[in-house]
């Protein structure tokens, strides 16, 4: 089948970009969306043109590398699916599609459809962890975890950090991503010691990185390939508000000399 693509081409972070029209005359319905782009790129290479840059790695929906907008929706029309798992059988001959990179101040475009999502790493570094050095852990069964909490933590931990939530949000908010990590660790007993500090620091960092705010539209939840729920965002708000009232900076008195 024939697919017409309008793809955002941008040479690097500093250049201006524009939409360029391409045709893929011989796409197969069994191809994945990225394989269809591979075919286009092979063709462009043969013609001596610059192939389209897009991020991808595992191609099985777990690494979180891939992701761009297809007709204004991150990862395309199939719910709960990353673009590497989207197959061409969802399209028909002659379809015309618009491909654009995720857009947010915190996600600058590097080239074509590829953006820099390192802001996510910096938000995690601000507090998205449990401070436990290697070797200092108690026995795995020393602390029972309520199964329901463990399951809910797992639901939140399923986030692959692809950035679709930011891309779809009318305010370019990272609330779903950040709250998923705050929920994952905050729901587990192991994560309680740092719960206040974590919420406080991650929310501050998210603001500092230039992400927008949440207006509870639910757009992120609808496009999340892993089905992360906005219930987590409420939990983040709760933890943040609580921490705003109760959080104390560490004592400056120091330990035994």
């Amino acid at each position: 089948m024939k697919i017409i693509l309008n793809i955002w081409r941008q040479r690097d972070a500093k250049s201006a970009g524009k939409m360029v029209r391409y045709e893929v005359p011989n796409a197969s319905e069994h191809m994945s969306f990225l394989e269809m782009l591979d075919v286009l790129n092979e063709e462009l290479t043969r013609k001596g043109e610059d192939p389209v840059t897009f991020e991808h790695d595992c191609r099985e929906g777990i690494c979180g590398c891939c992701g761009f907008m297809i007709d204004g929706v991150p990862h395309g029309p199939q719910r709960g699916t990353t673009v590497c798992q989207l197959h061409m059988r969802h399209y028909k001959d002659g379809d015309e599609l618009w491909l654009e990179p995720f857009r947010a101040k915190a996600f600058p475009v590097l080239k074509d459809l590829m953006v820099d999502r390192s802001a996510f790493d910096r938000v995690i570094a601000a507090g998205g962890f449990i401070s436990v050095n290697t070797g200092s852990a108690p026995d795995g069964n020393a602390l029972p975890v309520v199964k329901k909490c463990s399951d809910m933590a797992m639901d939140a931990a399923a986030c692959i950090g692809c950035g679709a939530c930011v891309a779809s949000c009318p305010n370019a908010s990272a609330s779903l991503f950040v709250s998923a990590k705050i929920s994952h660790l905050g729901l587990l007993p192991q994560g309680q010691a740092e719960r206040d500090r974590r919420a406080m620091r991650m929310v501050m960092k998210m603001t500092e990185e230039g992400f927008g705010y949440c207006t509870n539209t639910g757009e992120c939840e609808a496009v999340c390939p892993k089905g992360i729920k906005i219930e987590n965002i409420a939990r983040m708000h709760r933890d943040y508000l609580k921490s705003a009232f109760t959080y104390r900076e560490e004592s400056q008195a120091g330990g035994a000399g």
Partner: peptide
């Protein structure tokens, strides 16, 4: 032990 302490949500 290490992974549990880090918050890896193993099945329970």
């Amino acid at each position: 032990d290490q992974c549990v302490a880090q918050g890896v949500p193993f099945a329970r």
